[in-house]
Each structure stands twice: as structure tokens, then as C-alpha cells.
Simulated scan of single mutants.
Amino acid sequence: MTVTAAIDGAAGSATWADALLLSFAQAGYVRAQPDILQPAEPFLDLSGEDIRKSLYLTTDASGEELCLRPDLTIPVARDYLASGRAGQPAGFSYLGPVFRFRDGQPSQFLQAGIESFGRQDRAAADAEMLALALEATSAFGLSDVEIRTGDVALFSALIDALELYPVWKRRLIKDFNRKVSLAHDIEQLTLATAPGRNEYEGVLAALAGSDRKAALALVTDLMSIAGTTNVGGRTVAEIADRFLEQSTLKSGALPPDALATIKRFLSIAGDPDDAVAQLRALADDTKLDLTAAIDQLESRVGFMAARGIDTSLTRFSTSFGRGLDYYTGFEFELHAKGYANGQIKGDGIEPLVAGGRYDGLMSQLGSAAPIPAVGFSVWIEALTQLRKPARSTS
């Protein structure tokens, strides 16, 4: 049964949100009801800056920092990991209040959604999430929505293939996840970030332009003279890498070839099939091995088409990111546009539905083995407002 059919068949007293949840259950997703009060640490460590700065925090009698849940992905994931099904394929749906400070808007609002854990058929699972998200908006009377998609795994694969220094890799990925416009700001990312001098200035100058072997030899000699083998629990190799990263940041901009490649990559946008062709051309021209990441994108597009999604109307952009640090692959947002029930929609700045793949989150939450994960959230109030019939002026 489709989401639309489930809602149309729901009892008149049921809310649209409850009917939506029922449709998710009929699609095989079990109702999850995580606690409203959650440990704050996972959200502070793993969420994006927008969520971190909007948390409602408190402390219990033992000193543990707690928060009102700002979303439901991490709470549902924590409950799954604590259950007997951890590591096995499992799907959950949810409906409940979440709490975030939002300037000029209510801090408590209703959110529904789906989280899918443990499925190894990643491309098919990604396509299923997008199809269910589109059915959810359609059920609220929005048949014409803008589909925005991206894939942070492609950017990660590019940065890995370029074999940049670790400090550049970390900074570029971090700023991509935080929705920084890399095409505009990338030169700034590679400038020296430690103005002024410090006690290690001479060492940094000596390491500038060195390879890792030379850096390791220098730091090993210095520590040998000092009669120590580690500092603060760090090994000689770790300390050498840290000094090398600092000297790299102070040495200037990214290599011109790498900078040009990243800019070309970030300019790819439009039809997903065209994007695949442009990405393969980029990989061929630069001799970079991006095959696995591009194949995953192409496979996902195929599964999307198999589910009836018109991929030619789907906007794909290599620079698209949702601003959450834990995303590792496919990301998407659905935005309002055009008309529904005779009403002109809003400007589409805030998504009606949004989600993506976060394969690394389970390990960060304590799983001993990696567990694939993908899901999405539905902003119930926004959808409900958009489907209200226009008021009569007679």
C-alpha cells in the first residue's frame, strides 16, 4: 500500500501525521519511541554546527550533560544498538516532538521519519528512502516538489585520490559537511591558519616542504636528544605527523593541479546521468581512481528510476551537503515549489523532507563493527501548512 492510499483510508479522526506513520508501518518500518531526554555528548560530537548551537541543555545530579532531543536519528540509532537486533537489518519509523532553538519559530515541533539499519544493498536502500519521502509529500497534496541530491562519498573519494596532506583532507571534508561553499572559499582554506610566531616556528620552518620520512627523522632526532619516546601519550610518528601538518598549513596554498581539479569537481551539477558522465570524464582526464564512488552513484540512479522517480527532474550537485557531520554518502532534500491545492508554495529555502546515508555513525556511537544506515525526516508542520486549502475571500 502506498503512503497516499494509507492516508486516504485512515479514519477521519486520525491526524495526517498518524496516518503517515501507519503507512510507514505498512511498508515494514516498526514504530520507535526513544526518550525525549538524551545524553548531550553524541549531539555535541557528531551533529552539525546548526544543531549543536540550538540544543537545550541540562545536567543531572551526577553531572552528566543531557539535552532535549533535537532530532530523532541519533536517539533511534542508540536504541537500535542497545537492542538484540544490533547489526541485523532493521527498519524503524517515528513520530514525535523535537526541540531546537529556532530564531522566530517555535522551539518544539513535530517530526516523523524513517531510519534503516544494516542493509548491505546501499544503492537500493538509498533509492527506497527517496521514493518513500516523495510519497510522503505527495500524500500531503504536494505533487510538484524540487528534489535536491548530492553524495559526500564522491567528494571524500576525490580528496583521497588527490593524496593531499591529512590536514587538508580533514579541513576540506569538515567544511564540505558544514555547507561551506568550497568553490568560493577553497583558497582561504589553504592559507596559513596560525598567525604570529610560536615556540615551534623554527621546527615548522625546517619541515616546510618535507615529506613524511624527513619529518619523522627530524622529530625522532629531536626527541632522542631530549631523552623521550612519547609526549602526552603520542608516539614519535604521531608527533611528526602533527608538526608536518602545521608546517603544511603555513607553507601556502594547495597544489595548483589539485585546486583546479577540486573546482572542476564542485562545478558539476544538473541531471544525475549527465553528472555521471562528467565525473567519469574528470576521472579519466586527471587519472584519479573514482570508479567505486561513481559506480555507486550510477547504481543509485538506476534504482531510483526503477522505483518510478523521474531522474531527469532530480537535481544532482557535487557540492550539495546538508550540514550534518555524520553523513557519509547519499544526501537529499525535498523542497516546495509551484502549486498544491490551489496555493502558491513558499520559496523552498527550508526542506520539507531531508535525509541521507550515515554509515559511520554507528561506529561513532559504539558499535564494534560498521553498520550501514540511511534515513530521512519529515517536517510535519511545514507539510500540514502547505496542504491547507486557501481561505475564501467571498
Rank of each mutant, 00 (worst) to 15 (best):
S247I: 01
V276T: 01
Q364I: 00
D295Y: 05
F117I: 13
P89R: 10
D241H: 08
L361V: 03
D289N: 08
D45M: 15
A192L: 00
Q120E: 13
F243V: 11
G360S: 14
R322D: 09
A336G: 01
A25Y: 09
A269T: 11
T248V: 14
V180D: 00
V76H: 07
M129C: 12
R300T: 13
A192G: 09
P256A: 12
A14H: 00
G12L: 12
D295M: 11
R122T: 07
K53P: 09
N177D: 06
L46M: 14
G375T: 14
I7D: 00
Y80M: 05
A354G: 07
R264F: 10
E201I: 14
F155A: 08
G342W: 00
L282A: 00
Y326V: 04
N230P: 03
K174L: 15
P75Q: 05
F320K: 06
S210N: 11
K287Y: 00
F43C: 07
G232I: 12
D211P: 01
D144N: 12
L334Q: 05
A27R: 05
G356K: 01
S47F: 03
A369H: 08
G91C: 09
L313I: 11
A5R: 06
T4D: 02
G302E: 04
Y327W: 09
T314V: 12
E65F: 10
H335G: 04
P256F: 03
P97V: 03
A11S: 15
A139W: 07
E245M: 13
D359W: 00
S143V: 13
P372A: 13
A217Y: 01
P351H: 06
P42R: 10
F330R: 00
F243P: 04
M1H: 12
V180F: 01
A40T: 04
D285W: 00
V219K: 14
Q246M: 10
A281I: 02
L288S: 10
A253M: 02
A305S: 11
L365M: 02
R234K: 15
T248M: 08
F303D: 12
L162R: 07
F332M: 02
A240W: 07
A237W: 00
F140E: 06
A336N: 01
P75V: 05
S116I: 12
A240E: 01
Q343H: 10
I344L: 14
A32K: 02
G118A: 10
A11R: 15
D79K: 07
S312M: 02
K169S: 11
A161L: 09
T229L: 13
G113P: 07
A139G: 12
S93V: 04
R69D: 03
V145M: 10
S93R: 06
W168G: 11
R31K: 12
L249M: 15
A133C: 02
G113R: 08
L282W: 00
D295P: 02
G270E: 06
G141E: 05
E41W: 09
I74W: 11
D50A: 14
R212A: 14
A90L: 01
A382D: 12
T229W: 06
T314A: 06
R148Q: 11
S317E: 05
L46G: 06
V152G: 12
R264A: 15
I159Q: 07
A161D: 14
M129L: 08
A161E: 13
D126W: 03
T318W: 01
I349E: 06
T286P: 03
